[in-house]
Amino acid sequence: MTTAVTGHELADALRERFGEAVVDSTDGAVWIAPAAIAGVCAFLREDEAHDYALLSSLTAVDYVEYFEVVYRLTSLSRNAMTVLKVRVPGRDGPSLPTVTPVWRGAELQEREVWDLMGVSFDGHPNLKRLLTWEGFEGHPLRRDYLEPPLPYTWPHGG
């Protein structure tokens, strides 16, 4: 059975190396400062005691005051899973460093987060619209997104 590494355990392991960058921890997750996320991820992938080779998923949640980017890491060798979270404040152009150099699998997922949530990733090789189209305005998964009115009235227009 996959071990769920609790946030407290992981926070203790990370504090001696990253100190203040470890913001907070609960049973479910550990919160990392935005600027340090790429370094923490690289460490967790490369360090043999952790060996999180697989980035299971990367997504974001809009809590209105801030965005929370959620990294779910899996270690195949240890059969363990853990969760990193990053709080990114601000509605206008929130951003944090990319983890694409650490995991190739982050590339499409970060593009998706940028497209739908409007959180941008600094250093991403190809950060452009993914599910919506070029020229789409706004980021539809934000809580305050409103669909623009149709440019015609149904059923007469078209």
Binding site: L54, R104, G105
Partner: peptide, 17 residues
């Protein structure tokens, strides 16, 4: 693994996950 592939695509590469 690095590219987050899972399922039969990953197992075909020899990773029993």
């Amino acid at each position: 693994v690095n590219a987050s592939l899972t399922g039969p695509v990953l197992r075909a590469s020899g990773v029993a996950w």
